[in-house]
Design a protein around this nucleic acid. Structure first.
Lengths: 194, 194, 194, 194
DNA sequence: TATGAATGAGTATTCATTCAT
DNA sequence: AATGAATGAATACTCATTCAT
């Protein structure tokens, strides 16, 4: 039941927003009563926190997997992370949207915890970029932190428009983004498009 | 008075969110009463629509300015648009945040109107990319629509983290982004960083 | 309206208790809506605090009046205070009951304020007893503080049983109490009942 | 288990109040579950009734003991009853407080039963006073019922302030009260303080 | 222009109680 | 003898909105 509530809540929060979804909405659509909700969750906020935690922990573990693979180049790792982020939408659809849109409904303590984990994700990516720079895979004249934010912006924004059933599949979007990030959109003479 | 209300509302909506800001909050912080609010605005939603309209119209007119300059290359225009978007934060601070975060509190009709104008902005940029491709400034193997979304994602995301008083000034962020977009982050032998 | 709400609330709190009286009960019995209640009061607790403050302030001012009369003996002043306390029931009926029964529903800060004023009342009475002792009106072998509490206990307890319409009128009850306090119930040979 | 629940409930009702203590609070603090509570008690109200009954029955039996001793004077019996009431606090701490504070949470039938037993206690004391009057131990010009209520008020009120660990021990408080009741606080020439 | 009183529908949360196991 | 899931009715409180003045 707890899982059913979480699942349904994610769907409703995603569709209508956290504030716009009442506990009543949630329990009604499951055919149970409000008491049931509060049997499993301390508060609406706690449920939101659960959703956030599950999601960011999943992202972090996927990132960890990718980064710990010694055999891959930095470029490949960047590609894998971008693909992972984009692919996420297919599987976790609403989670991601909620993650970015509803964070401010957490209380200070909760927000802190999530923000810390978010920065962790960001810093792992930044470290990867820095590695790439010192290994001469990436240009040394672009600051790693801003580049990181640029990459994350691209990917995260896709949560607001990416249509899992759309014309361009996630794999393809990831490839285009990585190509843009790595080689730019400018026509180049010697080392043109891969 | 109407302007004072709008101004204060933007500030409060930005800080606390649309739903989290009550009409009472707004009028209290201006030392007037609720009646006054309803003298100038039909509803809270109408006020939000006003804010959205002002903002997107401003963006569109700035974009128009940039695009209509015949003397500039596509690259330069892309740079100008990116810079304009980033720069916006300094001047309009909260507006942009509200624009992206609170759109779902509009009603269907209003949302429609705004979404149409948003797409307009997006399509103008997409057309610019397409121009660049046919004029052989940009690579022809990357689909213009996805590239456009990538660029917008980068820029829009900065509304969530860009600190107008921070270490890296808007001008610089814009340059880094454009450099990334145009030439990528990969080390290149012959035609290195511009 | 604010006064009407306070008045009705006192009646209902007195009859049914603070917790047992809902805001709905209050507004229903006045034919208004909950919004109206919250237009005038911050919270249910605030209303309770209002009631407490009004009551204790009234008691203190009445006590002040009695104590400041230079022409009266200590004995007379004790009598006046006892009579005042008992008489209060007639006029303020429920107020007194609420004052003693519902104090714990105040929050810490509010309770503190009320408790301080309560002690003030108690200490004024204690000081009166001490005066009486040093002026040789009262026995010096009974500790003033415990005596004070005894007197207050007698009087306050009457809030739980005194029936304003009952057989024995307030004036009479006060006289009996004071007689008991001053001279005791024991048969005395020389200086019997006054 | 039943006793453990009762005991813990008395503690919690005393500290926080009947309404403010949930069944959950009680079972949590005992490490059991709500089902267990309802295995032993019909309802929360029934538990409260149990507490009331145990307490008033104890008081009545102690009073009975005192009154049935043929060798004592009325004065001594009054003293013993007052001492017994005051002493009670030490041993039964919260019980007494609950007894006076939470009675209104019983239902009509239960309340009736308790109120009857309470009056019984009161009437036993009143009868004692009347005996004292006819035996010329006590003054005949003070009505026994009001005097009784005065004595009970003094004693009962001590539940609200008496500190078992305080400066003045229960024995002493009882003596002062009885002295007050019997001889008054006035300085007397012939038969001064005992 | 602006006020202030009033509305009413909505919201999260609490809690005594039930009951199948 | 005890559990744990579920109920449902109640409760304090919020807030956009209305409207007579």
């Amino acid at each position: 039941m707890k899982d059913k509530i979480t699942e349904k809540s994610i769907e409703l929060f995603g569709e209508k927003g956290f504030n716009e979804t009442s506990i009543q909405d949630i329990v009604d659509s499951l055919g149970v009563t409000k008491g049931t909700f509060y049997y499993y969750f301390e508060s609406k906020q706690q449920l939101l926190m659960d959703i956030h935690l599950t999601f960011i922990n999943y992202l972090l573990s996927r990132q960890e997997e990718i980064l710990s693979d010694q055999s891959k180049s930095c470029k490949t790792k960047v590609f894998d992370i971008v693909r992972m982020l984009i692919k996420n939408i297919e599987k976790h659809g609403w989670d991601a949207l909620i993650f970015f849109r509803e964070i401010r409904h957490l209380n200070e303590e909760q927000m802190d915890k999530i923000v810390k984990k978010r920065s962790l994700f960001q810093h792992h990516l930044e470290d990867l970029i820095k590695s790439g720079i010192s290994q001469r895979e990436f240009r040394s004249d672009l600051p790693a932190d801003i580049v990181t934010l640029g990459i994350l912006g691209m990917c995260n924004w896709s949560y607001f428009w990416f249509d899992p059933e759309g014309r361009v599949p996630d794999e393809k979007v990831a490839m285009i983004y990585v190509e843009m990030i790595l080689n730019g959109i400018t026509v180049q003479k010697e080392n043109g498009p891969k």
